[in-house]
Design a protein around this nucleic acid. Structure first.
Lengths: 219, 219
DNA sequence: AGACTTAATTGTATTTTGCAAATAACAATT
DNA sequence: AATTGTTATTTGCAAAATACAATTAAGTCT
């Protein structure tokens, strides 16, 4: 009997965050087809039936298609649906957000990054998706290792401090930050590795196995 | 061209939380049709095309059908999809979780509450949905007014304290709890209203307008 | 009146945080 | 080689938040 229900298209849209020039940015694509041809939009695509257990596989496929490799951090954000969000008809979009160090994107050809405070006009309900993604990122940043995924594998304490300030959007005391981060065991020293310069060398750190497994552990 | 993509059914499933006899419980329905006829399951239903802007309207409809009124707290949880989760074929389930005071359910005829630690065997991927819902509820409880929605409109500080301990699953210091809650302005005294008994009368509180509007504010 | 029960406050030790300053370790320059 | 510049890291201390224990408050019941 439920055979007769109308069925929507199901797609994924990705909010791909990175930090470039000390600013929180999103990676957008330019649409090559109508509707909204020529506009910048969140990368997205249709979910295929084979892509099992939530639409994460589809999200990964879209990201790989856009930047050529997987994002270090990927998490489902929210699901938007309705007949009004896409002029072509009823659709459901399972939105994801992902974090990528800018250093990895530099090679990528097609990646265009826009500061979240200066986005171009976006099609569909993408402004709503962006708002929700930024809200979620800011909300999660304080209590988790999340912002660390915006950094390359090796980073200094000051790199981390700066990234946290940028994602949260507020000042954080250096000494307290150091204390808190270290006691949470989300990062660990890389023995003997330092970043040098015309100053005292800075200890290099990496995400601890604890932080990495916490990210993998999905129910 | 995307007309040719196969399209899944879209449904909502609801994790309806309540607290009965000091235990966190879920409201389940008994399935009246195959597959899994006779099993207890999360209340759910198909999303209709008219139900706009995320599937929240569908979730509300399902809840109203189950208990006869709206849940004080309702929020989207996670979206599960895949060809394997339902034997009838490819489906997408937008899962929600809701909080309801047991006092409101007592009248409701068909409501059967099961402690989350002693659930019967569940069909489909409902065990996964439940696990995710409990995880989310526990995670959000600490930093928000969330557990208060498990209480009736008027409650004492001790009621609130007990509810927080039960949802989080840990002891909380009474004096500190009182302090923290009051300074967050999520509840307010009801002037002149007390719960009496064979002891000192207890001040009655209600959720503040601040907490209620924070809940309404959806992007 | 006294026992009993839960509510609410108080006091104090401990821990966490915020802020400012001092010290450390290098490269570059004089 | 000594000095300067620059960023890293630690230290010290005041202020705030928290945990724990005990006390006081306000009623009912016998």
């Amino acid at each position: 009997m439920e055979q007769n229900y109308p069925r929507p298209w199901v797609m994924v849209d990705i909010a791909l965050f990175t930090i470039r020039d000390e600013r929180l940015c999103l990676i957008l694509t330019r649409r090559k087809e109508p509707p909204f041809e020529g506009l910048h939009a969140l990368p997205g695509g249709f979910v295929h039936i084979q892509e099992d257990t939530d639409a994460e596989a589809a999200a990964r496929r879209v990201i790989r298609g856009k930047i050529g490799f997987d994002a270090p951090y990927l998490e489902q954000l929210y699901t938007f649906s309705g007949a009004a969000r896409d002029p072509r008809g009823w659709s459901v979009s399972v939105a994801y957000y992902a974090l990528i160090p800018w250093s990895l994107l530099a090679r990528s050809t097609s990646a265009e990054a826009f500061a979240v405070e200066a986005l171009p006009p976006l099609p569909f309900d993408h402004p709503r998706i962006v708002a929700k993604a930024v809200e979620r990122l800011r909300g999660k940043a304080t209590y988790s290792s999340l912002p660390a995924f915006l950094l390359p594998a090796e980073f200094t304490m000051n790199d981390l401090h700066r990234i946290y300030e940028q994602t949260i959007g507020a000042r954080l005391d250096k000494a307290s930050f150091r204390h808190k981060i270290l006691e949470q065991d989300i990062i660990e020293e890389i023995p003997g590795r330092f970043r040098t310069g015309a100053h005292r060398p800075a200890q290099l750190y990496r995400l601890s196995s604890k932080a990495l497994t916490a990210f993998e552990r999905k129910i």
